[in-house]
Every structure is written in C-alpha cells, then in structure tokens.
C-alpha cells in the first residue's frame, strides 16, 4: 500500500495530520498497537520537523507485509551538521516551535529510538531527506 501526503512548512495547525492518517490506516490493518504507536510517534516527530524547519515537504509511505518504509523529503534550509542535529538537546528551532511544545532537540533522537532503521541526508540550502523503516 502506498500513501502520500503534502506537508506545508509553518502550518502548525495541520502538523500531525499525515501521521494521524497513517496511524488510522495501520490500525485498520490490525498492526499490533505497540508498533502502531512507535510508527505514529516517529512520523509525528518527523512531520513536526518539516513544519518547524522546512518550506514544504512530501511524506511517502509504503506498507507491506514485512513492515513500513517512510520517506520524508523536504525543501528547506537543510542541516549543516547531521551529527550535531542527532545530539539530544541540540536544536535550531524558533520560539514559535517551542511555544507548540517542541524544539528541545529531542525529535531526531526520539525518531531513532522508535525505528529499526533511520537514514538522514541533507544538502544545506536545498533540503533534507529522512528515511525510516519499522519492521512488523
């Protein structure tokens, strides 16, 4: 099954809608609740990252019998130093993002914790691509 969602940078009201849709689909597919939650949390943090940092992005989701693969590709400022971005507590988030309850530098570590595989690539000034795999 293939799903695709457009994500608008700066649209905090809509942040999480795509993750929520994926969660509903997984529930309908009778995926165990523990896995559904791990996937939903990882996708939500990733979606908030796009809303918080990028201009726009696309979330592509592929669900098969063996697991879920998600590719989130955004157009935005990109990440200068991925190792630093992965450090717990490091953040470049704006005050607006912090007011929404995020921006404490825990998003990427949270995503990593909930995934079986995570690949983050970025070109400064162009954008960032995040790929996640969670096995069923």
């Amino acid at each position: 099954m293939h799903l695709q969602f457009e994500i608008e940078g700066g649209d905090f009201s809509a942040a999480g809608e795509a993750s929520s849709e994926v969660k509903k689909t997984l529930k309908q597919l009778n995926i165990p609740p523990v896995l559904v939650r791990r996937i939903a949390v990882a996708l939500y943090e990733a979606e908030v990252n796009v809303v918080a940092h990028a201009y726009r992005g696309v979330m592509e989701v592929d669900i098969s019998g063996g697991g879920i693969y998600v590719k989130l590709k955004d157009k935005g400022p990109g990440i200068e130093n991925i190792d630093r971005a992965m450090e717990e507590g490091f953040s470049t988030a704006s005050d607006k993002v912090r007011e929404m309850g995020f921006g404490a530098g825990m998003g990427l570590p949270n995503i990593k914790k909930n995934c079986d595989e995570m690949k983050l690539t970025s070109t400064p000034g162009v954008g960032t691509t995040l790929e996640l795999t969670i096995n069923f």
Binding site: F12, S13, A15, G16, S19, S20, K23, P33, R37, A40, V41, Y44, V48, E99, M100, G101, F102
Partner: peptide
C-alpha cells in the same frame, strides 16, 4: 500547561 492543538495531537499519536 500547554494548551495548543499539538497537545491534543501528541495525546492522539501517543494513545
């Protein structure tokens, strides 16, 4: 103490 749409979304995602 955080009353935003993301408070509800976080609860939803988290169960």
């Amino acid at each position: 103490g955080l009353a935003t749409i993301q408070t509800i979304r976080t609860a939803e995602v988290s169960g």
